[in-house]
Simulated scan of single mutants.
Amino acid sequence: MRLLAVLGGLAALLPAAAAGAGTVRIVHLEIDGDPRYEETRLARRALAQPLGRPHAGAEVAIREAQFVGKAVGVDFTLERVTGADAKPLIAAVERLHGQGVRYFLVDAPAAVVAELARAVRSRDLLLFNVSAADDALRQTQCQPNLLHTLPNHAMTADALVQYLVSRKWRSVLMLEGPLPDDHLIAEAFERSAKRFGVKIVEKKPFVLSNDPRQRDQGNVALLTAGSDHDVVFVADSDGEFARSVPYRTVRPRPVAGADGLVAVAWHWAWERNGAPQLNSRMEKQAGRRMADSDWAAWIAVKSVVESVVRTQNADFPAVVKYLKEGDVTIDGFKGNRLGFRPWDNQLRQPILLATHNAVFERAPIDGFLHPTNNMDTLGFDRRDSSCAL
């Protein structure tokens, strides 16, 4: 009922005669053999990890768009393109752009997203990053035609640290993995800790290995001994080590980061703002629950649909202006009207703080205030941004 009411409201704003009949093609780009979706990794069902390709979330959004599309005389379609690396994806974008396609969802690691965005920088098109959380894509590697619907590391770290402060858990033991992405997560947490007054009392490296020479670096009891702390934060992009940390610490302390308490864009246990209906549609479409990147793909498609409808299917520059200059407000089923930050093209949004089967809080936490929009206490505010669009 909620979906019909929302779509019906959109349709009422725009009679079919007012919108030029036509087709809006949306293309989902992805990497063949992307290691983030390797079967054994997906089978772990680790917190803060994808549960499958986010194309499924885009499919849910396209199905939702059909109702309003018919009402306004526009047919929204979704196509899927796979490439081995950035080069075939760039070629595909160039070819499809020549056919009139202007909207692309990008499901790829950060390096591929950055290369693709640089290559098509001069084209009149929009790329939506739906699965790369790297801060650099919103900072030094930002591009004017690259929008981000997945929250970045800075946003999720700020959400988590706000919660720790609200609980008066101000001393943290950090366990950091050896992977480059682990380092990015740790850097973001350190920035947030400094921003909100949380002390990292010690930082220790961990290694997940069968090598007996590295056994001590994978021993949770040894790693968590010797320091007094309120919380253990685990920077583990893979999630395999993190799931062994809760209930194995020397002191009885909560665990956060990659397991225990996680900060996520979406969680199947979120029960407010129409979320159960969205989760139900995802499970019906994909046969699994919705996770972060699925939601990011869903909201990216929804952003395009909303902008096309509200501008009465105007030409591409008018849609972009509406989408990027703060006029668009999108219902992400998280309780706030969402829109893109003009200084770095990041979708501002609440962050959910959850365990494996419950959502405990939604950030920004009460009491963390901003002069214009409290959601800008999460991630890079305008004054903090090094993006030069």
Rank of each mutant, 00 (worst) to 15 (best):
382 R>F: 13
343 W>E: 12
226 G>C: 12
42 L>I: 10
103 Y>L: 08
67 F>E: 12
329 T>V: 14
122 S>N: 12
315 D>T: 01
293 S>H: 06
297 A>T: 05
221 A>F: 15
42 L>Q: 10
41 R>E: 08
60 V>S: 05
343 W>P: 06
5 A>P: 01
72 V>K: 00
22 G>P: 07
358 A>F: 10
60 V>E: 00
342 P>F: 11
126 L>I: 15
251 R>I: 03
37 Y>I: 01
162 Q>L: 08
197 G>A: 09
349 Q>P: 07
69 G>Q: 02
88 P>M: 11
132 A>C: 12
222 L>P: 03
286 A>E: 00
224 T>G: 05
280 S>W: 13
118 R>Q: 13
381 D>K: 05
52 G>P: 11
176 E>N: 07
129 N>R: 05
305 V>P: 03
296 A>N: 03
89 L>K: 09
219 N>L: 03
318 A>L: 13
90 I>Y: 07
121 R>W: 02
32 D>H: 00
389 L>W: 05
49 Q>P: 04
192 S>K: 04
312 Q>T: 13
250 V>K: 13
139 Q>V: 02
77 T>Q: 07
227 S>C: 04
169 W>C: 02
2 R>G: 05
350 P>M: 10
232 V>K: 00
206 F>Y: 15
51 L>R: 11
317 P>G: 09
1 M>S: 15
109 P>N: 08
89 L>F: 08
28 H>A: 12
292 D>T: 00
321 K>R: 15
337 R>M: 08
344 D>V: 05
356 H>V: 11
101 V>Y: 08
170 R>H: 12
58 A>W: 03
205 P>I: 06
263 A>H: 09
285 Q>C: 05
126 L>V: 14
255 V>M: 07
28 H>T: 05
196 F>G: 08
324 K>H: 01
8 G>I: 01
267 H>K: 06
364 P>C: 13
252 P>E: 10
17 A>C: 07
43 A>C: 05
4 L>P: 01
142 C>H: 07
351 I>K: 03
230 D>Q: 08
279 N>P: 02
388 A>K: 15
233 F>M: 11
129 N>I: 12
151 P>D: 03
222 L>E: 08
358 A>L: 08
39 E>T: 15
272 R>A: 15
67 F>G: 04
261 L>M: 14
269 A>T: 11
165 V>W: 01
175 L>R: 02
59 E>S: 05
141 Q>I: 01
7 L>V: 00
